[in-house]
């Protein structure tokens, strides 16, 4: 199976984020990491390749720094990478991001495309499904298991509140992958070494420009949300905090 994995670079989970001066975006001087479900999507593609053979290709769109996610993916076992490299790519909405991807892979023949189910930064939860529609392929979302069948694949969709559903579908298809579908591997030293010789195809903005258009939605402003609940801070040394808290549990909340 030939699988494409879409991997996005996002600010690190624990990174303290600050608004920029214009309050239009966050300050960009933060550390980045790969979007968590995308890491699970990569792992799943590697497992499918180990079972059924084929090729794993990873793709990202973003500035030079986002090459890091491709390097890591190559070190873990992806065969090659595609980088839509330009600062302009990060400002595209999900519709245009998907259009840029579709244009960048028009000469390839994938059986499967994996995306994460949503990004950890903006969480639009749309790019994979949009890409499927642009390609005219079927899709399934929030996937927790993938098996090859005679006619295509059988996937396990997660539904709300602990429910699941198996779905049979033909190939090619787009799947959006949920975190926790598998256990992630670490890159090995050999892997990191081999990655240096694996190809990364760079795609410039000009190459896909004719496929993309104006954003269909506009982020007008970004701000710190207003707190609606009254929160009482309990401060002091750990021992003092413990005492104060137990006092509350006993006398105010009456749970002790």
């Amino acid at each position: 199976m030939k699988i494409l994995v879409c991997m996005k670079q996002v600010p690190q989970k624990d990174a303290p984020l600050k608004l920029n001066e214009a309050s239009s975006w966050i300050r960009e001087d933060v550390s980045y990491e790969v979007n968590e479900p995308d890491a699970f999507a990569l792992e799943e593609s590697l497992r499918q390749k180990e079972k059924h053979g084929g090729e794993v290709v990873v793709i990202t769109s973003g500035p030079a720094r986002s090459q890091q996610v491709l390097r890591e993916a190559l070190a873990k076992g992806a065969d090659r990478a595609i980088h839509l490299e330009d600062n302009a790519f990060v400002g595209l909405d999900a519709f245009n991001t998907a259009k840029a991807f579709a244009a960048a892979i028009k000469d390839e023949k994938f059986d499967l495309i994996f995306t994460g189910l949503q990004s950890d930064d903006y969480g639009y939860a749309q790019t994979g499904v949009i890409l499927a529609e642009l390609l005219g392929w079927p899709h399934a979302t929030i996937i927790m298991q993938i098996e090859k069948t005679d006619g295509g694949i059988k996937v396990k969709r997660e539904l709300e509140a602990g429910f699941f559903q198996f779905v049979d579908m033909p190939l090619p298809a787009v799947l959006t992958i949920q975190s926790g579908i598998n256990k992630l591997r670490y890159a090995t030293l050999i892997g990191i070494k081999q990655a240096k010789n694996k190809p990364i195809r760079k795609v410039a903005l000009a190459e896909v420009q004719s496929a993309i258009g104006e954003n269909l939605q506009k982020i007008e402003r970004l701000y710190v949300p207003q707190k609606t609940k009254k929160t009482e801070h309990i401060e002091g040394s750990p021992a003092e905090i413990a005492k104060k808290l137990v006092d509350k549990l006993r006398n105010e909340l009456r749970v002790l």
Binding site: D120, D121, K218, I219, E220, V224
Partner: peptide, 11 residues
Amino acid sequence: MFQGKFAADVS
């Protein structure tokens, strides 16, 4: 946005 750390107004 950013897992609830920020909010955005979108048109």
